[in-house]
Design a binder for these strands. Sequence first.
DNA 1: CGGTGTATTCGACACACATCGAAAACACCG
DNA 2: CGGTGTTTTCGATGTGTGTCGAATACACCG
Lengths: 104, 104
Amino acid sequence: MPIGRWAPLSHPDVASVEVDDLLRALADPTRRQIVRLLLAEGDRPCGTFGLPVAASTLSHHFRTLRKAGILRQYDDGRQRMNTLRLDELDERFPGLVRTVLDAS
Amino acid sequence: MPIGRWAPLSHPDVASVEVDDLLRALADPTRRQIVRLLLAEGDRPCGTFGLPVAASTLSHHFRTLRKAGILRQYDDGRQRMNTLRLDELDERFPGLVRTVLDAS
DNA sequence: CGGTGTATTCGACACACATCGAAAACACCG
DNA sequence: CGGTGTTTTCGATGTGTGTCGAATACACCG
């Protein structure tokens, strides 16, 4: 069962997400790759992305994406799962995420 | 007649525009405002945007937008005109610019 | 030519960011 | 409890960026 962890895991309300933060978050190729994989193959724990960066760097990217309202994280035993908040984002910024991903 | 100026005014080929540069360029509110005004009211010289930044800062933003392939600049007498390269961009990144602007 | 208007360049500054390795936090398992 | 696996935090580092003022470059006009 998903219980808490040392870090509170705060997720911003979609209404309070700034477009600046969203665009800056999506302007990084590693982060776009994360989003792309989540969109294509569904929820995944942090350690299963196979990206060529250090674990600490990856953690930084997940935090950035979470604070930008792009994904939601929850703990599941030993690992931390990631879910795309696509529906919520599409309500506030219609088509943005998809269009950006398609552009790459 | 638009002649040259001290700076060569180089414009990248749309095919060589990286999505990273485009997104980074659009991730700045001042630059988005520039693009928005160009889209809404057509070509304008640099000095007619009424934005709350110093002239040198504005010049930096125009250079960023030009290098990202977002606008084209040409000299007209004393002033430098700016044109949106929307059609070209839409061919390479369909709907991106519009979607981003609509999101703000 | 000299003055005025428009825009860029330069140098500087503060700040943000991507990246890493090492260390720490937490969950699970034996 | 002790070990293992997963992820985060911390500190450091190099790089990029938005901002400005002052100086410079160019076009036009009288």
